[in-house]
Amino acid sequence: MMPNTTPTILMVPGLRDHVAEHWQTLLERKLPKAASVPPLERDKLSCAARVAALDAALATIDGPVILVAHSAGVMIAVHWARRHSRKIRGALLAAPADLETPLPDGYPGIDTLARNGWHRIPREPLRFPSIVGASRNDPLARFARVEAMAKDWGSRLVDLGEVGHLNPAAGFGEWPMAETLIHELV
Rank of each mutant, 00 (worst) to 15 (best):
K30C: 00
S46R: 08
T180Y: 00
H70E: 10
N116W: 08
G90T: 08
V78S: 10
P125T: 09
N167I: 02
H84P: 03
L45S: 10
N4K: 15
H18R: 13
P176R: 07
L31I: 08
K30A: 15
A56I: 01
T5S: 10
D111A: 14
V163M: 05
A144V: 09
M149V: 01
W175N: 00
A49W: 09
L26K: 05
K151R: 11
R142L: 06
V68K: 06
G109N: 14
F172W: 15
H79C: 00
L160D: 07
W23E: 09
V158D: 11
V19T: 13
E28K: 15
S155T: 04
R82C: 01
N4W: 07
T25N: 14
E184T: 07
V74G: 03
A48Q: 13
M75F: 01
A134L: 04
P176E: 10
D55I: 03
A114V: 10
D43I: 06
P104G: 04
P39V: 07
A81M: 01
F143I: 09
G171K: 14
E179G: 04
L185E: 03
T25F: 02
H18L: 14
L126M: 06
N116K: 13
D43F: 13
L181Y: 13
E184A: 12
L92F: 01
A134I: 04
N137D: 15
W118P: 04
M177G: 00
V158N: 02
Q24I: 03
P122C: 06
P64M: 09
P176S: 11
V186M: 12
A170V: 03
I66W: 11
R115H: 10
L166N: 01
N167H: 03
N167T: 07
P38M: 05
P129N: 08
A150D: 00
P32S: 12
R89W: 02
V37F: 04
P96C: 01
A148Y: 00
H79W: 05
A91H: 04
P32C: 09
W80D: 03
A178D: 09
K44C: 12
P38N: 13
M11S: 09
A49V: 06
K44W: 11
M2W: 08
V65M: 12
R142I: 01
G171W: 08
A148S: 13
E174I: 02
L166D: 05
A77F: 02
A57L: 10
I76K: 00
G164N: 06
G154M: 02
P7D: 11
M177P: 03
L67H: 03
T6W: 00
L157P: 04
R29H: 13
P39F: 06
A134H: 01
P39L: 03
V186K: 02
A178S: 13
G133R: 05
K33L: 15
G171D: 07
A141E: 00
R145V: 06
A144C: 06
R16M: 14
T180F: 04
A170Y: 04
R16C: 10
M177T: 14
E100G: 10
G117R: 07
D152N: 12
V68M: 11
A178Y: 04
M11A: 15
K87D: 11
L15I: 15
K44E: 15
D55F: 09
P7A: 12
R136M: 09
V12P: 02
V65G: 13
R16H: 15
E28A: 14
P13A: 04
P64W: 09
H70I: 12
A95E: 10
R145S: 11
R82A: 14
R115E: 14
G173L: 08
I66K: 07
E147R: 12
E100C: 05
M75P: 01
